[in-house]
Design a protein around this nucleic acid. Sequence first.
DNA 1: GGCACTTCTTGACAGTCGTCAAGACTTTCT
DNA 2: AGAAAGTCTTGACGACTGTCAAGAAGTGCC
Lengths: 211, 211
Amino acid sequence: MTQVVGKNQERISRRQVDKFAERRAQLAASALQTLSELGYARTSLREIAQNSEFSHGVLHYYFRDKVELITYCVRQYKAECVTRYDQIVITAGSAEELKHGFGAAMAGTLREDATMHRLWYDLRNQALFEESFRDDVLEIDQSLEQMIWRIVSHYAELAGSPAAASPAVAYALFDGLFQQALLRFLTGRDSAPADLQAGVEQLLERLVTPA
Amino acid sequence: MTQVVGKNQERISRRQVDKFAERRAQLAASALQTLSELGYARTSLREIAQNSEFSHGVLHYYFRDKVELITYCVRQYKAECVTRYDQIVITAGSAEELKHGFGAAMAGTLREDATMHRLWYDLRNQALFEESFRDDVLEIDQSLEQMIWRIVSHYAELAGSPAAASPAVAYALFDGLFQQALLRFLTGRDSAPADLQAGVEQLLERLVTPA
DNA sequence: GGCACTTCTTGACAGTCGTCAAGACTTTCT
DNA sequence: AGAAAGTCTTGACGACTGTCAAGAAGTGCC
């Protein structure tokens, strides 16, 4: 059922643990791909297995049940996206540069990772109905809020005026913009990324301009 | 299968159509209640029927299939909520009054109709994966955007300065605030409605203040 | 080679799902 | 009253779900 490590083979047990973790990550990647294509409601374990190179039974060798698999997926998703804009914060030398870099990065990930973002909103919503993922989802949401706040506060610093909103409000506003852009992008409106970039940059300006 | 009306009984056919429509609405109400409790992914026709006073077979007498039922539900939901704030716009005599009325109304519906809002976001997200509800969802979303814009533009009028955002952006920002407040409210943060009211009022001010 | 252990496949299970058809019950009209 | 139309229940169907157990296939050690 769960992983069993050899009795007195300490040398290789480390290697086996690594292989075990690697395969978990590999299967989680297949699961994430399937989830992002079909959504939570329509994703079954057999479908996930078909998107991998294994059969459906193997999922229960690496994950206790469906909940543990999806929880693991959510955590893996988080690791990828929580530091998405940090490089921009580090390298930006001016407020203008940061603003354009952030706007372009938002527009870029909208274009490139649209289905993954769609999945994120799907799972965040599931957490409103189901207790299971709630803690992980809330933790990711908080990390995203902090990521946004690193942008806003650094921009305020570069611009020389204090930020005029709390981290929570700033995150909510950018998230609203992004979610609407995602809806439009996925329903075929090609101008969505450019519109998002403009909206994001305008919002960033206004968030550090005193009323 | 579908409704069959008597041959030459024009007098009563009208009454039968009404009864038919009434029962559809009644069943849709049961469906909406079930959906708001369980979410789209976990709602089955049998569960819906158990939340009504009928057996599961009757759903296929009044609705062709599950998609038509949920589509009908979405439309019924729309009719209820699209004019939610219009009374406030009409009766508000000053910018201040409109601002407080709107903030209080948002906080109030967050408290009262939280599970319905949760369902709305769930269904809007389903539309990103499924083609079926997409048109209806987009139509509702547009109506909500217009509803928000009636608030913003009227507030700008009362305040004497032009609105500094497009209808789409304004809607996205308020929606972001509301969605975050919903997440917090449903996860037990009691201050969510008050925080939402404050955030909404602040945003409304800033949306009509020139940069 | 034989052995211990890990990894993966296969097939089955109990349950649920949407759908539908047959028929019973109810209402309405003549 | 009897016929006809409308309404609802019951029970079944095939398909799909998560889960699990039995065993085959693969891997490394003596």
